[in-house]
Amino acid sequence: MDLGCFFEQDGRPAVRFERVYPRPPQRVWRAVSDPAELAFWFPSRVTVEPQAGGVVTFFGDPRLADMSGRVLAFEPPRRLAFTWGGDELHLTLEPVGEAATRLVLVNVLDDRSAAARNAAGWAVCLGELDRAVADRPGDGPHGLAAAAAWRPSYEAHLAAGLPGGAPVPAAP
């Protein structure tokens, strides 16, 4: 099971995941920045004004209210960061060799007790991203397989020592 790493970033709690894809950075960039491709793996539908200071809008997540945030960084094809509620999400890409890309996802948390919950969610979402980048998209993070994977991931993150206790949104 893929577990996130808990740490502090600039004095705030955060979880971190890292993946290496056998695809060029431009392909992975599309998967993490294009709203049509985000639909395959990201928990909400998203629109993004592609510039620092732009608005990012989140909608259509069956477990969360629609909301908007601010783009903190938009540097194709290597960095995208934005606010999401009180959290920040940082996606960083770097080439590995000639045809691979390392993706680092960091979720800076507003609430320390959300670490295990959010890490479990990102583990599920990144599983869907893995399929999308391999051009074999699944049912998305709210599909049956992904939903079934969340609870074991959450329990594993708690067992690994990530802080817990934040409310878990009910399934629709």
Results as ranks from 00 to 15, higher is better:
1 M>D: 14
1 M>S: 11
4 G>H: 05
4 G>L: 06
4 G>M: 07
4 G>P: 02
9 Q>F: 02
11 G>F: 03
14 A>Y: 03
15 V>E: 01
16 R>D: 00
17 F>S: 05
18 E>F: 07
18 E>A: 14
21 Y>I: 11
26 Q>W: 02
27 R>L: 06
29 W>C: 00
31 A>D: 09
31 A>E: 12
32 V>G: 02
33 S>G: 00
33 S>V: 08
35 P>F: 14
36 A>L: 15
37 E>F: 12
39 A>F: 01
40 F>R: 13
40 F>D: 14
40 F>Y: 10
41 W>F: 09
42 F>Y: 15
43 P>Q: 11
44 S>F: 14
44 S>P: 03
46 V>H: 11
47 T>Y: 00
47 T>A: 13
49 E>H: 12
49 E>Y: 04
49 E>A: 14
50 P>I: 06
52 A>V: 07
52 A>P: 12
54 G>S: 02
56 V>A: 15
59 F>A: 15
60 G>D: 10
61 D>Y: 12
62 P>A: 14
63 R>Q: 15
63 R>N: 09
66 D>P: 13
67 M>N: 12
67 M>Y: 15
68 S>M: 10
69 G>S: 08
69 G>M: 02
69 G>A: 06
70 R>M: 10
74 F>G: 01
75 E>V: 03
75 E>L: 11
76 P>F: 05
76 P>Q: 03
78 R>N: 11
78 R>T: 10
80 L>F: 05
82 F>P: 04
82 F>S: 01
84 W>I: 03
84 W>Y: 07
85 G>T: 01
87 D>P: 02
91 L>M: 10
94 E>R: 15
94 E>M: 13
94 E>T: 14
99 A>Q: 08
99 A>F: 04
99 A>W: 05
99 A>G: 12
100 A>S: 15
101 T>K: 03
101 T>F: 13
102 R>I: 08
103 L>W: 11
103 L>A: 02
104 V>F: 11
104 V>E: 14
104 V>Y: 06
105 L>T: 10
105 L>V: 13
107 N>S: 15
108 V>L: 07
108 V>S: 05
109 L>R: 05
109 L>G: 06
110 D>M: 00
110 D>V: 05
110 D>S: 07
111 D>E: 08
111 D>C: 02
112 R>A: 07
113 S>I: 03
114 A>T: 00
114 A>R: 04
117 R>F: 10
120 A>Q: 08
122 W>T: 09
122 W>K: 02
122 W>G: 04
125 C>M: 01
126 L>W: 10
126 L>M: 04
126 L>C: 07
126 L>R: 09
126 L>D: 01
127 G>R: 10
127 G>V: 06
127 G>I: 04
130 D>L: 08
132 A>L: 04
133 V>T: 01
133 V>F: 13
134 A>I: 01
134 A>D: 15
136 R>Y: 12
136 R>H: 13
138 G>L: 14
140 G>T: 05
141 P>K: 04
142 H>M: 07
142 H>C: 14
144 L>G: 01
145 A>N: 01
146 A>G: 12
147 A>S: 09
147 A>N: 06
150 W>H: 11
150 W>Y: 15
152 P>L: 07
153 S>P: 00
153 S>M: 14
155 E>F: 09
155 E>G: 08
155 E>A: 15
156 A>L: 01
159 A>D: 07
160 A>M: 04
160 A>V: 05
160 A>R: 06
163 P>E: 04
164 G>S: 09
166 A>W: 08
166 A>Q: 03
167 P>D: 13
167 P>A: 11
170 A>T: 09
172 P>K: 12
